[in-house]
Design a protein around this nucleic acid. Structure first.
Lengths: 206, 206, 206, 206
DNA sequence: TATGAATGAGGGTTCATTCAT
DNA sequence: TATGAATGAACCCTCATTCAT
């Protein structure tokens, strides 16, 4: 049983690599089998079908993410710190490991509706936690008057999209990434924010 | 000839819809033909192959984006305004029209390497323009000391990811979207930025 | 269109032969294609799937049978003659052409429930016609007091089962077959029926 | 060893059920194993292969049938009684227990040629016994001038085909079935046989 | 310009069977 | 005796693409 689980994990590992490299649709069950040095029919001993492999991979990532985000939610710390922690977490999971995000982003259409629903439910809980931080902070006057739902998505989007360009092996350390996301999201890029903000608002009002 | 161009465009229109709905791999050439009320063989009169349809669609989007970004670059206006204009443009093209971004995001793996390269070249020029705004502003001391390349990607990423959740038919107007992106990118979400920023830096230094 | 129909028919012809020879399950789509000198995928141009081929074949047989049986039903002739005609028809269709009955008998489990239902409906009408002959005759006192439904099935069964042993190329002419079925069904094999019948009834009463 | 035989029998029991329900081809070795609460590999300890299971089942039915028919053959009773006994036997074995006939009818193509030959040999002996009854009776003038081989098949066919429609759980008792087969085969359905027969002969002579 | 017909490659999946344990 | 794991062959079917018309 333990052995079987190990093999399942091994299959998921190679499958993850291939799915990221080529995309789910362009990865054949035979590709996965070869990369895992097995016969293609052998895969069906471990997984019901191809989609089940993808589902297993995605679910594992999501479960870990959600568990860690829940843990942040119940920590005894200021909200601002929770936001920092959430940014750190999301960057670690989806930003600094492009593999994971690539999977999530690419493969929605490849899951069965049922599986996709399950995943969505967890994704929703995950983002609702962050939104709740922002909502509370807005009520406390700690943050600007911005739609918390939109802000949550904007934050996640900014971080996640790193998978499109960020190379963990490259020059830029993941710490720098994390810092940048934090700074942009909390304080923006401009130096004289106050003025620029007002200016901007005037602009938008036109 | 004009007629032929019209037909090509019509094909691209239905193909775009299908690619976005189902993904490129899951859209068959017959699906496109049927949706366009033609015979699947007929498509080959207008396009060399299936990939060419995708390429055409993506290139058109990219060409328009790039042209408009170039136009911003040469405008005679303060850099800050150019940033605003770039955000507006990107939001309009990729944020407020989820179709376009969906296409870009999903279909890189489906293009031939050559076509993908061509697209990348234009994408690169497009993002380099924005990066040049940021670089210059940093040199002027107008913006924080952040890696301009990373910031560019963060900005684009934040905006683009809207395709995953933004519904143009929904309650939130695209204006609100644009404003939020601008405010977050320029000034962040926190109210007492200055303090929080320092705090944050202390935290990161630990 | 006429050409396409011809090809469909040709495919059905070879498929019929193979289905009878090997059974539906043991006949691969490639077998059919090869026997029809085409590529296996070509079949899908004419039929939705393998089952559709079988369904088409069976439906055609059934439609012809039913049409002819209906025609007997409305003929202006004594009931006894109608029974004779029905026996002739059934023998011709299912007895003397083993192919047809073999198909019907073997392949119920291979049809989709929907298709099987459609076939059943026609089969039912077909047998109900014969049953109605028998019922009326019983009411007239023309036939023994036997359950007409059972008799109908017994008659059909006797005739159909010929496919298991009858060889149209062999010594026995189909006329002899027809005569035998008629004589057995109407008058039985024994010479002194009356007595034997009574005897038999006594036996069964024990 | 006795234990092994018990297990074999148990396997045959579940296999019979499944073969009848779904057909031999559509029943997988794993289906059988699961239904018998064992591992599919385990089956190979008891049977050489899947076909061997079917062969064993069919052979057992055939052996029993044949033994009982032989026993009728050597009984000291009038031929007419022997015919009655044969009809009773065949109805009991193949008519009233649809399972058995279904198996025989459906699975000829699934046996190896050798096994099929063995079965045929016994089937032939079985039917030859009945044919010998008829032949002798004809020589005695006890039955009409009909081809005894054909009559045998007609009789068996009539009875066997009951598996297609007869439901042992339904209203009609198996006694009624037996009676009907006997009455039809011996005396036919018509009341005024003599006349109708002549009439019929005239008709056929046309 | 457009279509009907055909093809070849490949895809996911099933399954009887084997073998080491 | 029994099982977990693996394999190879085959199967149905899809699809991009081509070609004669």
């Amino acid at each position: 049983m333990a052995k079987s689980a190990k093999k399942k994990e091994a299959i998921c590992r190679v499958a993850t690599r291939l799915f990221v490299e080529r995309g789910f649709e362009k990865t054949s069950i035979r590709d996965i089998a070869e990369a895992g040095k097995m016969n293609s029919s052998g895969l069906y001993y471990y997984f019901e079908d191809k989609e089940a492999i993808l589902y297993t991979i995605l679910m594992e990532i999501m479960d870990e993410s959600l568990a860690r985000m829940r843990e942040i939610a119940i920590r005894d710390m200021p909200l601002k710190e929770k936001i920092y922690a959430a940014i750190d977490l999301h960057t670690e999971i989806y930003g600094a490991d492009p593999v994971r995000m690539a999977l999530i982003a690419y493969n929605q259409k490849s899951l069965s509706p049922e599986h996709w629903d399950e995943l969505r439910k967890k994704q929703r809980e995950y983002s609702l936690i962050v939104r709740s931080f922002l909502t509370e902070m807005r009520n406390n006057g700690e943050i600007e008057d911005l739609n918390p739902t939109l802000c949550t998505f904007a934050l996640f989007g900014m971080i996640q999209s790193a998978y499109l360009w960020y190379d963990p092996q490259g020059e830029v350390k993941s710490d720098e990434l994390r810092e940048m996301f934090t700074r942009i999201f909390t304080g923006g890029v401009l130096v004289e924010e106050r003025n620029s903000r007002e200016e901007n608002e005037r602009r938008l009002a036109r």
